[in-house]
Amino acid sequence: MLKLFETETLSLDKLTDEQTAIKVNDFSVWLNNSLVLNNINMRIPKNKITAMIGQSGCGKSTLLSSFNRMNELNQKYAFSGEVELDGRDIYNKKENVAKLRTKVGMVFQRPNPFPMSIYENVCFGLRIQGKTERRMLDDIVETSLRNAALWDEVKGRLFDSALLLSGGQQQRLVIARALALKPEILLLDEPTSALDPLTTLHIEELINQLKKTTTVVIVTHNMQQAARVSDYSVFLHQGELIEYSDSDSLFTMPAKKQTEDYITGRYG
């Protein structure tokens, strides 16, 4: 399979703590009393792109939102195990969850712009942090929108309601919103599912750019995309981690039969 962007690959088993962004230890999740994630163990390398693939309902979104504790918004949520960031368990009692989420940004599967202007959507997170200097906000709004390949379409109507944007534009807006905070880790849940091929390519380029400073975890149903953009890939099946390796090996010579079946399209 063709790789668009060349990167050096580290061996996953030999990752040092320095090179690790997120460390998941024996992590299980129950939603509504049913087991959704079963004993996940993995290390996500720093400043790399990791793709999560797997059948619908296998727990990708659940795992992704475990990394910034968004799961907790569910009423019937239970977990065991640890998720470590910079060597500390983010599920510890004293964790400042709001601060954690500014460091671990997230783009949701369904675009959810706020009922405010485009401009206010993008600087929402900054305003929460008490940043009000107009010049700085203007700059960040412009860069974020440019990076999300939306600037040209909205620069003339920054103060119109974000609800008037098309689905795909909304999806890019919420990406820009997450970028504005310059997170250390960015969690993307199917960020290009509503975009045309050209815009998708833009976003993929952006993801690749981000790699210099940011760890990206991306959920996708598009095998080509996963192979194109990611350095590492993880395959989940019914809440279990089946295979996790560098994307080259996972897509060219999967170690497990289940993985092979999935990527060659033999699963429903």
Binding site: M70, F108, G125, V174, A178
Partner: peptide
Amino acid sequence: VPEGLRAGSYALGATKAETIWKTVLPV
């Protein structure tokens, strides 16, 4: 108020009070 709106606000580092005040109440 759609759940997604609350989630979006939390994911940008808003606390519960900020989320209610800035996104939930207007809607």
